[in-house]
Simulated scan of single mutants.
Amino acid sequence: MNKRICVQIAAGSWVAGCFTALVEPVSVLQLSLCGNSVINHFACEILAVLKLVCVDTSMAQLIMLVFTALLVPMLMLLICISYAFILSNILRISSVDGQSKAFSTCAAHLTVVVLFYGTALSMYLKPSSVDSQEIDKFMTLVYGALTSILNPIIYSLRNKEVKAALKKLLFRNSLVMF
């Protein structure tokens, strides 16, 4: 990858992210809210705000559906394409140790990506008949917080010193319990 392509990918990510972050909330926040404006959620999630609207929300829901159905799969496809290139390069590495380290890095990253996109897609593309605020809260917690919390843990578990310290801690605690 050269510098020009890298800058184009970064700029595209920023523009798409900012555009999405502006269009969806603006389409919902311009609608009239009912008298009870308490959001029963952990955060000001757009779907939770949408439940407080008193007027027809079909246009806002259509905008969110289009963004979710087009943008997220496109991003996932780009990630898959990039990993196909990475995989082809990993398979060219002659040493087994080098391949193992590269696969370990990819597996850690893909774990976080699948967790994030999987929960986000299931949250925004679920049928309207499955409407549970508790499930919505849990899914938001998973894709909003858990992926951020797991990221350093998943990446640090590849470190030999961290693995040794974790084994020592677990072994010590298992002896204390007996």
Rank of each mutant, 00 (worst) to 15 (best):
G118N: 05
S94E: 13
Y83D: 12
V96A: 14
L22S: 06
V96F: 10
L75I: 09
L110H: 07
T20L: 09
V23P: 04
A120Q: 08
N36W: 00
S32K: 15
Y117C: 14
V26R: 06
L115V: 10
M76Q: 10
I39A: 13
S27N: 02
A60M: 08
T105D: 06
L31H: 06
S37V: 07
L121I: 12
V38S: 10
S94I: 06
F116E: 02
S95W: 00
I93W: 01
I81R: 11
K51V: 03
C44M: 14
Y124G: 13
S122M: 02
I79M: 09
V112C: 05
C80S: 11
L70R: 01
S37W: 01
M123C: 10
S94T: 11
T119L: 09
N40V: 00
V66Y: 04
T68Q: 07
L50K: 09
M59N: 13
C44T: 15
L110R: 07
A60Y: 03
L52K: 14
G98I: 03
S88A: 04
L77S: 05
M74P: 02
S122Q: 09
S122H: 08
Y83M: 10
S37C: 12
L77C: 09
F67Q: 13
V38H: 12
Q99M: 15
L115K: 04
L31R: 10
S82F: 08
M123R: 02
V23N: 00
V53Y: 04
C44R: 15
E45K: 08
A102C: 09
T105Q: 04
G118E: 04
C106K: 05
S58W: 11
V113N: 07
Y117K: 07
T57R: 11
I81K: 14
A108I: 01
S37P: 02
V114R: 05
V113P: 02
L77A: 15
S58V: 12
L22V: 14
L22W: 11
C44G: 13
F42A: 08
N36M: 01
I90R: 03
D97V: 14
G98Q: 10
I39T: 15
V49W: 06
E45D: 15
L78M: 14
G17K: 03
L121G: 01
S100H: 13
H109Q: 12
L52G: 01
V38P: 02
I46V: 14
